[in-house]
């Protein structure tokens, strides 16, 4: 009884924080993979996730399909709509997260828009995250001022910052003492596009001066060279659209897909 109570109130995010610590000791950059839950289907998605783990991915960001994903670019958006058409939602996304937890060792970050969480209710959402093994939560349409809506449940919330963020916004993120900060690398939505390198470096340094949290750079990272370019300024990179494109390209040849994802991960990890 007491043990259950303790488990129930365990603060999430410990596995993620530990993973960052290990990587720091090894002087490695974290490779964070974003993948949409249960798209193209549950089994193939699980295989892809295992392949990512084999390829050296460190953390997994699991997306929950939503009807109106306005922070996402074309490629990821297609995955949202495909998921919605297949009847995916937050409940099924969390069920799938539990399968992922059983199938691999990757610490799990759930990526969901706010409305499905609001409908589920915060209590139930936090409880279900715990039982599904979700370590942290990213809500792309909750800016820093509204993150408080998810407070008080022991959820590890990952704040986002953008190149346009003012110093006071950076300070708001730092004050949360998060497991890491998700630094959006472009003025835009998720997708593949090259970055103005110096500008990104200045921006990462600006965040670094204010926060001790690890910094993960995401949105627009697709090439190993990009990973190398930001090695000094970022502690990790998030790869999303680039993986989604590989999945789209090879899903009709499911026997090949995991191997290709694994190789892509290895190539990215090698340069990190």
């Amino acid at each position: 009884m007491w043990k259950k109570w303790l488990v129930c109130w365990e603060v999430l995010g410990v596995k993620i924080r530990n993973r960052w610590d290990e990587l720091k000791k090894k002087e490695e950059m974290a490779l964070i993979a974003f993948i949409m839950a249960a798209v193209p289907d549950e089994d193939l998605c699980l295989e892809c996730i295992r392949a990512l783990e084999q390829g050296g991915c460190d953390l997994l960001e699991l997306g929950v399909p939503f009807t109106d994903p306005l922070a996402d670019g074309e490629v990821i958006e297609r995955f949202h709509h495909r998921g919605v058409r297949r009847g995916l939602n937050l409940k099924r996304g969390l069920d799938f997260a539990a399968r992922v937890r059983d199938a691999c060792q990757l610490p799990l970050i759930l990526f969901s828009y706010y409305n499905p969480i609001l409908q589920m209710g915060l209590d139930k959402f936090a409880g279900d995250c715990r039982s599904a093994g979700v370590e942290a939560v990213i809500v792309p349409d909750l800016p820093l001022d509204e993150l408080g809506r998810l407070a008080g449940q022991g959820l590890e919330l990952i704040p986002m910052l953008a190149p346009s963020s003012t110093l006071s916004r950076v300070q708001m993120a730092a004050e949360l003492d998060p497991a890491f900060i998700y630094c959006v690398s472009v003025r835009g939505v998720t997708g593949l596009r090259s970055l103005p390198e110096m500008e990104i470096k200045d921006y990462l340094q600006k965040v670094r001066r204010v926060s001790t949290a690890p910094l993960a750079l995401g949105f627009g990272i697709s090439q190993p060279e990009q990973v190398r370019a930001f090695r000094e300024q970022a502690d990790g990179v998030v790869i999303g659209s680039a993986l989604a494109q590989i999945i789209e390209e090879y899903e009709s040849r499911p026997a090949l897909l995991p191997g290709i994802l694994e190789k892509r991960c290895q190539a990215l990890k090698l340069l990190s």
């Binding site: 306005l70 349409d141 800016p143 963020s165 959006v184």
Partner: peptide, 12 residues
């Protein structure tokens, strides 16, 4: 009401 948009858009 409020503002429920990506952080990127807040400065705008």
């Amino acid at each position: 009401g409020g503002r429920f948009v990506p952080e990127t858009l807040i400065p705008a």
